[in-house]
Write a protein that binds this DNA or RNA. Structure first.
Lengths: 162, 162
DNA sequence: GCGACGTTTGCAACCTGTTTGCAAACGACT
DNA sequence: AGTCGTTTGCAAACAGGTTGCAAACGTCGC
């Protein structure tokens, strides 16, 4: 692969810091540490908000194929290094799972400009479990996202008061 | 259009019961009462659970084109006669909005067999509004769906105890 | 009833996000 | 260095959904 890391960056990247948890998890699944893999994680590390496959691919430059991005996000998701979000626009988005964190959280998304805010509020566990019990379900989880119009967008559309 | 209603069913369908609210709303939007339109609403009326475009089209037989189903579900959604749901599998599903009802509710979906249960629990309004205020958002809404394994599917996968 | 006019339909082509088959390239281990 | 399973790029395939267009239809005024 045409991995720019070995050309433009520290040549010993393979034995650098991210190795700690990454290699461990990769080994666990008999997966390999590859250029694209690291590059994708780097991109996610540098971004605050969930990113789409296309965005990650773009941020990577021509470093690897879009199909590779898709495939890697699947494997990283399976390994629990990355979390998938679905904002209902038909595009999956991914976030890095912070080390040793269950990291469960939700988002508030502006329906005008797509600004994304991370939210700590969550659906009450007791209610969720009662609900599961009542319907005989187990292994219960939920998806929860909030939508609205952010302050900026409200300002933009507010009529000028003379 | 090849509308089987006029062949196989009551020929006076156009002046039947659903007209009440339907015609009113359609007129409001200067929309017409067409065969496919009614047929789609009939199908939804007969089904308890949210249906995908494809399913509705299939239930309709060759009564109308799939593109027509898509277009009509959009218009019906715009008019508030139908509500769209997104269970994260990349397929939109639709439910009839009960007459004169805000009908806001959520679902519990079995991740094995896709069984769907309608749920009344909802995210606490006060918390939602506090959240909106804190982040300067207005017009706040949410999407919330629960996933789990239903009783039947648990039974199937449970090891037989001798 | 009948015609005019805007709406809706079927059809086929298209778009976008995502997946897949395959041969070549690569990473880890001996 | 050699081996073997994993990963990659590429191009083609999918799937859900959308769209342009001409023909068919529903509504409304006469």
């Amino acid at each position: 692969m045409n991995n720019p890391c070995s050309q433009h960056q520290h040549p010993h990247r393979l034995v650098q810091q991210p190795l700690t948890e990454l290699t461990a998890k990769l080994r666990q699944h008999s997966r390999k540490i590859t250029g694209p893999r690291q590059a994708i994680l780097d991109v996610l590390r540098r971004h605050q908000n969930p990113m789409a496959n296309r965005e990650i691919h773009a941020a990577l430059g021509q470093e690897c194929d879009l199909a590779t991005v898709y495939r890697n996000l699947h494997t990283l998701e399976d390994m629990g290094l990355v979390r998938r979000f679905d904002f209902g626009d038909g595009t999956a988005r991914f976030e890095l799972v912070p080390e040793g964190d269950d990291g469960h959280h939700h988002h508030l998304i502006c329906t005008r400009c797509s600004r994304i805010v991370e939210i700590d509020e969550c659906f009450p566990v007791e209610v969720e479990q009662a609900l599961a019990r009542r319907h005989g379900f187990t292994e219960i989880t939920h998806k929860l996202e909030f939508f609205g119009v952010c302050a900026q967008c409200q300002a933009k559309s507010a009529p000028a008061v003379p």
